[in-house]
């Protein structure tokens, strides 16, 4: 019975995955991604990893859906059609995947009690945590105490994500100096963003040769409405 649930969930996951790839409407894709997360959460529950399932449900299906919707509100929600079917990538993925299947075929069978992971460190946690830490949830003991330092690192990762997003998206006043067409300009107090933008457009025309072959800006990238290289502006 359990195996039947496993297979059914995996099939559903696969179908959802393919659907996400094929959808061109990004709103629908985001919704499907939410469903994908819920399905995987269910799969984790079946695998008895309740903590992981909980996290997946809260983060994957909850917050990240909201954030992706927030992004879509900024960049539009229709994916461009690819010019030609991606035969080469498909081929590469199939070949690489095939080799990987072969390569991992000797992995320890799933859930088997003789597996190395159940032989070495894990038994210690299971047997000793009750005495060491005296809380019943071993997952919490491992996460917060035995490997609490990793959790601290992960907290730092989360914080880093915030710093990164704020650096990229937050808006502030104009900088003291801006780079317009390869020239530093001191920004006079009281200059509006629109004036600078007009100047920038002018300077860019003059300095159109500044192409290092990087392919220029991506249309619709977050910086596209700003002065060259400087995101800023009145606080929203």
């Amino acid at each position: 019975m359990i195996e039947f649930v496993d297979v059914a969930l995996l099939v559903l996951l696969a179908i959802t995955g393919v659907t996400i790839i094929r959808l061109r409407n990004l709103f629908a894709a985001v919704m499907m991604a939410g469903i994908y997360s819920l399905l995987s959460a269910a799969l984790f529950v079946v695998m008895d990893a309740v903590d992981v399932a909980f996290t997946e449900a809260a983060v994957g299906a909850g917050i990240s859906t909201v954030l992706m919707l927030g992004t879509l509100a900024l960049v539009g929600h229709q994916e461009k059609k690819p010019r030609r079917p991606a035969i080469v990538p498909l081929f590469v993925v199939l070949v690489t995947g095939g080799i990987l299947v072969y390569g991992t075929s000797q992995m320890p069978p799933f859930g088997h009690a003789d597996n190395p992971i159940h032989q070495h460190v894990a038994p210690y946690y299971l047997e000793e945590s009750e005495h060491d830490i005296e809380i019943p949830n071993v997952v919490t003991s491992v996460l917060s105490s035995y490997r609490g330092y990793d959790t601290m690192g992960e907290t730092a990762v989360v914080f880093t994500a915030m710093v990164g997003v704020l650096l990229l998206l937050a808006r502030g006043p104009l900088p003291r100096r801006v780079l317009l067409g390869g020239e530093w300009r001191t920004v006079r107090p009281g200059t509006t963003r629109e004036e600078l933008r007009a100047e920038a457009a002018h300077a860019l025309d003059a300095d159109g040769s500044d192409g290092d072959g990087s392919g220029g800006t991506t249309p619709g990238s977050p910086g596209s409405e700003d002065i060259v290289g400087e995101q800023g502006g009145k606080h929203g």
């Binding site: 990762v157 880093t160 994500a161 710093v163 990164g164 650096l167 990229l168 780079l179 290092d212 990087s214 392919g215 220029g216 800006t217 991506t218 990238s221 977050p222 910086g223 596209s224 700003d226 060259v228 290289g229 400087e230």
Partner: peptide, 19 residues
């Protein structure tokens, strides 16, 4: 890595974002 991505994106040139 995460902080490095953000730091690089702070470049003057808007191509810093793509990079």
């Amino acid at each position: 890595s995460l902080s490095a991505y953000a730091l690089i994106a702070m470049g003057q040139d808007r191509r810093a974002l793509t990079a």
